[in-house]
Measured scan of single mutants.
Amino acid sequence: TTLTVNTQTYTFTSEEEAREFARRYGAKTIRKTNGTWEVHG
């Protein structure tokens, strides 16, 4: 199964959650914005 996250942004309140998600789905960018963490595919 392949998950494609081209134009979607996922927002997390903790860096740990964001990094775990990025690691699991191979997202390329993690960015902190206004106190939340954004993961970009």
Rank of each mutant, 00 (worst) to 15 (best):
T1A: 12
T1W: 06
T1F: 09
T1E: 13
T1G: 14
T2D: 13
T2V: 09
L3E: 13
L3D: 13
L3K: 09
T4G: 13
T4W: 06
T4Y: 07
V5G: 13
V5L: 09
V5W: 08
N6V: 12
N6Y: 09
N6H: 11
N6R: 03
T7H: 13
T7A: 09
Q8V: 14
Q8G: 10
Q8P: 09
Q8A: 11
Q8W: 15
T9W: 14
T9Y: 14
T9D: 03
T9N: 07
Y10R: 06
Y10V: 06
Y10D: 01
Y10S: 02
Y10Q: 04
T11K: 08
T11Y: 13
T11V: 13
F12R: 00
F12N: 00
T13L: 10
T13P: 06
T13N: 10
S14I: 04
S14H: 03
S14D: 07
E15C: 07
E15L: 11
E15D: 02
E16L: 08
E16H: 09
E16S: 09
E17N: 03
E17I: 03
E17K: 05
A18W: 01
A18L: 01
A18Q: 00
A18K: 00
R19P: 00
R19T: 07
F21A: 03
F21H: 04
F21Y: 06
F21L: 02
F21P: 00
F21S: 01
A22I: 03
A22M: 07
A22L: 04
A22W: 03
R23M: 07
R23E: 09
R23A: 09
R24M: 10
R24A: 06
R24C: 06
Y25V: 14
Y25A: 07
Y25C: 14
Y25H: 11
Y25D: 01
Y25L: 11
G26L: 04
G26E: 03
G26N: 07
G26R: 05
G26Y: 03
A27I: 13
A27T: 06
A27N: 05
A27V: 08
K28I: 14
K28N: 09
K28D: 09
K28A: 11
K28T: 14
K28G: 08
T29P: 09
T29V: 15
T29S: 09
T29A: 15
T29Q: 06
T29Y: 14
I30L: 05
I30W: 03
I30C: 09
I30R: 05
I30K: 03
I30S: 03
R31E: 08
R31I: 13
R31N: 06
R31V: 11
R31P: 05
K32G: 08
K32P: 03
K32Y: 15
K32R: 09
T33I: 14
T33S: 12
N34Y: 02
N34S: 05
N34A: 06
G35L: 04
T36P: 01
T36S: 08
T36M: 14
T36R: 09
T36V: 14
T36Q: 11
T36A: 09
W37S: 00
W37A: 01
W37P: 00
E38F: 06
E38H: 04
E38Y: 07
E38Q: 07
V39P: 00
V39D: 00
V39T: 02
V39G: 01
H40S: 14
G41Q: 10
G41R: 08
G41H: 14
G41I: 15
G41E: 06
G41N: 09
G41C: 15
